[in-house]
């Protein structure tokens, strides 16, 4: 089964793809990278827990977190990463990306 890396760009309150992500991620190695306003998933415990119940690994772009005033404040379970690290995940660590 190809591993799935989800690409999220929208804030938790704008995002409507959680059920879809749950269905696509089910039973496989899965991760998510949070870009732009999706970074807010990593700073609100309730939203963070919901996301972490769907994917096994969660990454947040360090620059998006810092620009929004949350540098170093991602809740446990989220790893802040750089663009080269995001590229490594996309190109080498996961088989497919799915933007939701």
């Amino acid at each position: 089964m190809p591993s799935k890396l989800f690409i999220l760009l929208k804030s938790p309150h704008e995002f409507t793809g959680m059920d879809m992500m749950k269905n696509i991620a089910a039973g496989e190695r899965s991760g998510a990278i949070l870009f732009e306003d999706a970074a807010y998933f990593a700073v609100d415990k309730r939203q963070a827990n919901e996301l972490l119940s769907v994917v096994k690994e969660a990454y947040v772009m360090a620059d998006d977190l810092a620009s929004r005033g949350f540098e170093g404040k991602a809740v446990p379970g989220f790893k802040a990463i750089t663009y080269p690290e995001a590229v490594e995940l996309i190109m080498e660590q996961y088989d497919q990306t799915v933007t939701l």
Partner: peptide, 20 residues
């Protein structure tokens, strides 16, 4: 419209610099 294109360019730059 938003930062999407910026994200695309930053991903492209990082990938290119890694030799992809």
């Amino acid at each position: 419209m938003n930062m999407d294109t910026n994200v695309a360019v930053k991903l492209a730059r990082a990938a290119s610099q890694k030799g992809y």
